[in-house]
Nucleic acid binder design. Structure first.
Length: 569
DNA sequence: CTGGGGACGGGGCCC
DNA sequence: TGGGCCCCGTCCCCA
């Protein structure tokens, strides 16, 4: 028994020794690995610091070169012949411009995602290909400053976008700008940073900076121009701001109305996973940073989710939902995944398929016919006005109100000067779309219309995934689910969900064919049929039968032909 | 020829 | 009385 006890004791001591040895071995291994990791981490940190220093040096160098070049150019060119892009805009706003000049835009070379400081901004007057972010900062009294009056087009980085960037532009603190300012105007005429207006001189692709002497009337306006397709994934590009839509020439006002969101967070309907815009069903919320907004902007640009929800519930549900008790949900504001990002790439705006296809024309037309467009602007009138509250609805409405304020101020000024109001039909369509300048009779109309540009569709169907920009369209859509067909044909048993469909259908009975071909005697009951027919005259028959070679102007004709003549059945 | 949706103007209601 | 808001009707386009 005693031997047994001794044996067990020895076993236990041996086990303990072995365990200790094992622990010591493990600890040693861990220590070694840890040391190795520490070395590697410190090495990586050193590398990072070195790279960062290099980057800073490069930025400083580039900025210095640009500043020197700018100074040289300013010395060489006493007064650039270019009367500035913004001057052109102003001229158009005053009715001095010529629409035949097309639309100006700032063009970034395609395929470039990132700004380079030395990358030129090309000015395109016709093509409308505009993909580069440009921020225009101008002084309200830029005009008062005369020919030297100032405005600036500042490049906005798209790569490694620094959220402070916009603010930095305004304060001149951003790398690449600050050195330039320091070596330019600031060096000679130190100015409070918030007093500076920065000037872009067209024709000079690099920013020409000029200090502003009048600090009190400073109005900083932002014009975010365009995102390219390459920026589809950038949530900040998909906010309710310009969204890449072309700015309306001649509308300085739009700068006050664009709800340029500081941040847009994407998430799926079903979760919080961050999305980058590829998901068509994604929703978004916006976060505005009032601290980054300036003056007129900051009080009217909150398009946050809360506001939209508030709007949605107060707006739509009061209208339709509680009326009929329809099961309609208005949830997060949604930007379609294919929300138009540029005027050039999305047919929603200008392409063949745009329903009215008219935005562009209307836009030009509005410039020509809308007296508001010709209203000379003095943005500083806004400074003394009471800011528009944001709590009553989406910002677009406010933008319209703000527009109205501007326009009314113009009228008032004209009256004071003994003249007639500049906008004679101020009651009619005085609320302008900030994207296309189209006029509407009330802010609500503008807000709805602007969803064409923003892709916002606040009204969602509970039965399917469809979303709509207008409540009425959602209501109409829901008849698809309910089967309701309130429009009955008196001649037959046909029933329709839409009144216009009934009206169209009744031509079958009446034989009315109001659409006549201008090139032959054929007449059609529907405009679309005439449109297809016209291709016969233009020899557009791109669809060939694979069996007999016969060509057709429409795929549907070919299909019918093949079913009739070559069906295997 | 029908079905569905986008977009916009008109008109009614409310404040 | 005028303006804002909302619903409805309608035109148009496309599949």
């Amino acid at each position: 028994m005693a031997n047994c006890m001794v044996f067990h004791t020895q076993i236990a001591s041996i086990m303990e020794v072995l365990a200790n040895a094992a622990v010591a071995e493990i600890c040693k291994l861990v220590d070694d690995d840890y040391a190795v990791f520490r070395v590697e981490i410190s090495h990586s940190q050193k590398e990072n610091r070195g790279l960062r220093r290099k980057l800073q040096l490069l930025e400083l160098k580039v900025a210095r070169e640009r500043a020197e070049r700018t100074i040289r150019e300013r010395v060489l060119a006493s007064r650039p012949s270019s009367v500035k892009i913004l001057d052109r805009y102003r001229g158009m706003a005053r009715g001095e411009g010529h629409l035949t000049g097309g639309h100006r835009s700032f063009v970034k070379p395609a395929g470039h995602n990132a700004w380079r400081d030395d990358q030129p901004i090309s000015i395109d007057e016709g093509s409308g290909i505009s993909t580069q972010h440009v921020i225009v900062i101008e002084s309200a009294d830029a005009e008062a400053a005369g020919p030297g009056g100032s405005s600036l087009v500042k490049q906005e980085r798209t790569e490694g976008d620094d959220p402070r960037h916009s603010r930095d532009i305004q304060t001149g603190a951003v790398a690449g700008v600050a050195p330039l300012l320091a070596t330019d105007d600031l060096a000679t005429t130190p100015q409070p940073r918030n007093r500076r207006s920065i000037t872009e001189v067209s024709g000079m692709l690099n920013a020409d900076l000029k200090s502003e002497t009048d600090s009190e009337n400073l109005t900083v306006t932002h014009r975010l121009l365009h995102t390219g397709p390459d920026q589809m994934s950038d949530p900040e590009r998909l906010g309710l701001g310009p969204l890449g839509c072309r700015p309306a020439p001649g509308s300085e006002y739009l700068l006050y109305s664009i709800p340029s969101p500081r941040m847009v967070h994407y998430h799926r309907d079903s979760g919080d996973t961050l999305e980058t815009g590829n998901d068509l069903s994604c929703t978004y919320t916006t976060e505005m940073d009032p601290g980054n907004m300036h003056l007129g902007l900051e009080r009217q640009t909150d398009l946050s989710r809360e506001d939209w929800n508030q709007y949605s519930s107060s707006g739509y549900t009061e209208g339709c939902l509680d009326k009929k008790g329809d099961d309609i949900v208005v949830d997060d504001v949604k930007v379609e995944g294919d929300a138009p990002l540029t005027w050039n790439v999305d047919k929603t705006h200008l392409g063949e398929g745009h329903s009215k296809g008219r935005d562009f024309l209307d836009y030009r037309e509005s410039l020509e016919t809308n007296p508001n467009v010709a209203t000379h602007s003095h943005l500083h009138v806004l400074r003394d006005r009471e800011p528009v509250p944001t709590s009553t609805g989406p910002s677009n409405s406010h933008s319209c109100i703000l527009f109205d304020k501007v326009l009314n101020s113009e009228d008032q000024r004209a009256k004071e000067q003994g003249g007639r109001p500049t906008s004679g039909n101020s009651k009619e369509k005085r609320f302008l779309c900030t994207f296309c300048n189209k006029g509407f009779s009330c802010p609500q109309k503008v807000e709805i219309h602007q969803r064409v540009h923003t892709g916002v569709k606040p009204f969602s169907c509970t039965q399917c995934q469809m979303r709509f920009a207008e409540a009425g369209n959602l209501k109409r859509h829901q008849r698809v689910h309910t089967g309701e067909k309130p429009f009955n044909c008196t001649q037959c048993q046909m029933r329709f969900t839409q009144a216009c469909h009934l009206k169209r259908h009744q031509r079958v009975h009446t034989g009315e064919k109001p659409y006549s071909c201008p090139r032959c005697d054929m007449r059609f009951a529907q405009a679309g049929n005439l449109k297809m027919h016209l291709k016969v005259h233009t020899e557009e028959r791109p669809f060939a039968c694979t069996h007999c070679g016969k060509r057709f102007s429409e795929r549907s004709y070919l299909k019918i032909h093949q079913q009739k003549n070559h069906s295997t059945r």
